[in-house]
Design a protein around this nucleic acid. Structure first.
Lengths: 223, 223
DNA sequence: GTCTATAGCTGGATAGAC
DNA sequence: GTCTATCCAGCTATAGAC
C-alpha cells in the first residue's frame, strides 16, 4: 500500500537522522550536537529536520530510548535461559551489555550520565529502562529461588549494586581506554571478577544450598 | 613585592576563568563550553582570555587537573590514618570522595568520562590522578600487610575494581538522581555496602589473618 | 515534504592599536 | 593586559512558497 511505503520511507529518514546524530556527537561531544551538521550530512536543509523531530531535545530523547531498547533486546536471548541457569544468564547478559556499551560510547554516555543539560528522558523513553531493571530483578529473583543467591540479592540494594558495577566498568573503560577491543580492556576484563564479587557477597547462607560462586568463578575466570 | 602582586592578580583571574567555565558547563554541557560566555560573565572580551589560556582545550585540561588535585587533597586527612586503620581510612576516603564528586558533577564528568572529544588529559594534568591511585594502592597494601585483606586486594585487579565501584556509584547517582542531598541518594547510600562487598571479596584466607605484632610494628613505622 | 529566506543570535581565534 | 576590529563561520527555529 502506498501509505505503508510512505511511512516506511519516513521511518528510514528518522533512523538516518538518528544514526547521523550519533556520528556527530561522537565527533563534537554529546552536548555539542549540531542539527545543521546532521542535515548537511544527510543532504537536506536544516528546516527539513523539523518535519521529523520538533527539537534537538526530541532527538536526544529518541536516542536515549533507542539505546535503552537496544540494550533490552540484547538481553532477550539470555532472558530465555534464566530458568535453567540464573547466574549463568546474568553473567552472559552482563558480558553482552558491556560489549555493546563499549561499542556504543555515545549512547552509553547519554544513558549513564547527564551530558546534555536541559535533556531529561521522557517517561516514554525511560520505559525500556524500567523494563531492563525488571529483567534484572527477574534473573536475580530466579537465582534466589534456586538457592544460588541470598534473598537480599534481589532487593533494591542488590539491583542498585549490580547497576553500579555495570556502569562503573563501562565508565572506567571508556574514559581510560576508549579504544580497547571488546573484552580486552583494562577494566572490561575485570567485569567477570566484579560479578563474582557480587555473587560472593550475596552467597546463600550455610544450609541455604549449593554454592554457585566457587564453581562459577573457577570455571570462568581467565588469567 | 610588585612582581608578587602581579602574579597573584593573574592567578586570581585564572581561577575566576576556571570557576566560571564550570558554571557555564553546568548550564550548557561540558562539550558545549563557550569561551565567549565565560568572558562575558567575568567582564572581559573574549580575546583577553587568550592571555590566560591558549585554547579551549587548555581550559579543559586545567579543570581536569584541578579536579584531580582537589580529590587528592580530600584524601590527605585519611591518608594519615592508614597506618592505624587501613580499612577505616579507605572507607572514610571513599565516602569523602563520593560526597565531593556528587557536589561537583561537572568535574566528575570531566574526570570519569570523555565528554569533550579532542580533549585528552595531558601528562601533567594526569599526574595527580596517578598520585591518587598510589594513595589507594598504599592503603590497600597496608590493609594487606595488616592481615585485613588478601594480597590480591592491592593488585591491579583490586585497584581496578575499587575504581569501578567509585565511578559506578557516582555515575549512577548523578544520572538518576542528580540533585539528591549528599549521602541520601538512592545510590550513594549503598556506597558503603559496595565497599563491604569489595572487602569481603578480598577477605584474607584462613590462617592469613591479622597478626597483632606485625600490625603494631607497622603502626610504629614512620610514613 | 522539501525548500528559500530570514530572524536573531552564537562561536573560536588572530592582528594589531594603545 | 586589555581592547577593537575582524575573519569567517556557526547555530536553532520559524514563516511561508512550491
Amino acid at each position: 500500500m502506498r501509505q505503508d511505503r510512505r511511512l516506511r520511507r519516513r521511518n528510514e529518514t528518522v533512523q538516518e537522522i538518528l544514526d547521523t546524530a550519533i556520528e556527530v556527537m561522537a565527533e563534537e561531544g554529546v552536548a555539542a550536537l549540531s542539527l545543521a551538521e546532521v542535515a548537511r550530512r544527510i543532504g537536506i536543509r536544516p528546516p527539513s529536520l523539523y518535519q521529523y523531530f520538533p527539537s534537538k531535545i526530541a532527538i536526544y530523547d529518541a536516542l536515549f530510548e533507542r539505546g535503552m531498547r537496544r540494550s533490552v533486546e540484547i538481553l532477550a536471548p539470555y532472558r530465555a535461559t534464566i530458568a535453567d541457569d540464573p547466574c549463568g544468564a546474568i553473567a552472559a547478559g552482563q558480558e553482552a551489555t558491556i560489549a555493546w556499551m563499549t561499542a556504543n560510547p555515545v549512547l552509553a554516555q547519554l544513558m549513564y550520565w547527564r551530558p546534555a543539560p536541559g535533556f531529561e528522558p521522557s517517561p516514554q523513553a525511560f520505559e525500556p529502562a524500567v523494563q531492563q531493571l525488571e529483567i534484572l530483578r527477574e534473573a536475580l529473583q530466579a537465582a534466589v529461588d534456586a538457592g544460588q543467591l541470598a534473598p537480599a540479592a534481589a532487593s533494591e540494594e542488590g539491583l542498585a549494586l549490580y547497576t553500579v558495577l555495570i556502569s562503573g566498568v563501562i565508565s572506567q573503560q571508556l574514559s581510560n581506554e576508549p579504544s580497547a577491543p571488546p573484552g580486552q580492556g583494562r577494566f572490561t576484563r575485570y567485569a567477570r571478577t566484579a560479578l563474582d564479587m557480587f555473587f560472593r557477597y550475596y552467597a546463600p547462607e550455610e544450609g541455604e544450598t549449593d554454592d554457585p560462586i566457587l564453581r562459577r568463578s573457577r570455571a570462568a575466570t581467565p588469567d
